[in-house]
Amino acid sequence: MEVRDQVRGCLLIAYRDLLRFWKFKHWLFSQIVMNLADVVIFALVFNNIVNRQYIPDYVKFMSTGVLAVSVFASSFSIAREVGAEIRREVVQYLLTLPTSRNAVIAGRIIGGTLRGLIYQTAFIALNLAVVGIPSPKQSVIILYTSFMLAAAMSALAIAITTSTRDFNLQATFRALTYYMLFFFSNVFYPREVLALRFPGALATIVTHTPISLAAEVYRWSFGYSEYINPTALYELTLWAFTLLVTASLLYRRNISGR
């Protein structure tokens, strides 16, 4: 098959996922609003958690954190459809189209990645207004980070969904991963608080998840924080590639194993 056809097929598959995404925009928005509401309520109830000493400006702290969450939630949404399409055998349709399996797999991952990036633009605007204006170099870093995070989350979502043929197990894994990544991150608490709350090893792990890494980069790039983990970008890249490879292998096995 010609490369041109492959690319076209792959982009059309991704485009299909974007069209679907558009239908779920309200769902996604409410999802994020709900998550944020949780955080605010949390903060009010456990007032001591949001300590001025650790978080000088809660609004700026949260806005930069939400940048990571928005990419995560929207890229991760690809999982539901990939899963539902396997369950309802709609995937059989994709398998008969005049494209290669690689184009299908790559298209889905790109679809998820684009969902994350597109959805994030609204929150980028929010940060520009509320937090600060990044330098050109920082802008490039932001772009790169978002891209890697979106790809990693899209791949993770697909990997989990295709890791087993048991649909209940799939849904459980997916929900578990979603909430683990969501709550065990530095999006809501800075690393100092994490260190107090979680035992040593766990606190370290939490700061090295893709979401925490990205949030840290965003906080630095928008000028909220002085600190940046010097290897954050490398770690994020490593996450992205590992997850991409895993997802491709699992998805392929899942759709062609029969």
């Binding site: 299909r16 679907r20 239908k23 539902a84 309802r88 055998e89 059989q92």
Partner: peptide, 28 residues
């Protein structure tokens, strides 16, 4: 990959997700 260039199939069980509309499905 080569075989798929030649083949088109109308499934016994129609394949679509619930939110899809006929026009979008066919256009894509």
């Amino acid at each position: 990959d080569t075989v798929r260039k030649f083949v088109g199939i109308a499934f016994q069980e129609p394949k679509a997700m619930w939110v899809d509309t006929p026009y979008e499905l066919l256009l894509w």
